[in-house]
Computed example of a mutant assay.
Amino acid sequence: MNDFVTQSATERTARAVATRLSTDHGPELLVDVEKALRAGDNSAAPDQFLDPISLGSLIVSVASLGWAVYADLRRHTPEPPRQELVQRIRLELVDPGESLSTDEGQVIDAVVENILDEGSAD
């Protein structure tokens, strides 16, 4: 996957996840994700996500990470299993011995669902 395609996929996934989660977190989540997308550096997973802006950053970070993991898994199998994708993202996002927050779990699940839906369409 080239950078243009990956970036576009990351943006599409982040926006789709924000739309989905905005029912629980409010419509301002959409704006927060746009701000995070415009910030540009979404390669590092933040340590804590306590406020809505951080949730927007989390969504963008997990979308970017998710697509990178998906591309890696696709080199070995054309249709990576959902659970393997979830597990790899969790391993990258959360330090060993720590547990996921509810928000992190929701974001990972929504990102994986979006990636698998979009990935199967290509």
Rank of each mutant, 00 (worst) to 15 (best):
R12S: 03
L55A: 07
N2S: 03
H76D: 13
G66P: 01
L30I: 12
E28G: 02
E113M: 11
A14L: 01
N114Y: 07
F4D: 12
I89T: 08
I89H: 04
D95R: 14
S61P: 05
G97D: 11
E113W: 07
N2C: 02
V5Y: 13
L29M: 04
P80W: 03
L93K: 13
I108W: 11
D47S: 04
V107M: 11
K35H: 10
P81G: 02
A18N: 00
D117E: 08
D109S: 12
A44K: 08
T23A: 11
M1S: 08
T102E: 14
A110L: 05
A68S: 15
A45V: 15
I53R: 13
V60S: 08
E11Y: 05
D72S: 13
R38N: 12
P78H: 13
T102Y: 12
I115E: 06
R82S: 09
V94H: 03
L58Q: 09
R12I: 00
L93I: 06
T102G: 08
A14G: 06
V111S: 02
F49V: 05
D47P: 00
V33F: 02
L50W: 05
A45W: 06
R75L: 13
D122K: 06
A44H: 06
F4A: 10
P52Y: 11
S43W: 06
R74W: 02
H25Y: 15
S22T: 03
R82V: 08
G26M: 04
D41T: 10
L116E: 15
R12K: 06
S22Q: 01
T10Q: 10
L73A: 02
S43A: 13
G97P: 13
D72E: 15
V107K: 03
S99A: 15
W67A: 01
L65Y: 05
Y70K: 09
R20K: 15
V69H: 07
A110Y: 04
D117P: 00
R82I: 05
R74P: 00
T77G: 00
T77D: 12
D51T: 13
S99N: 11
L73Y: 05
A36V: 02
A71V: 14
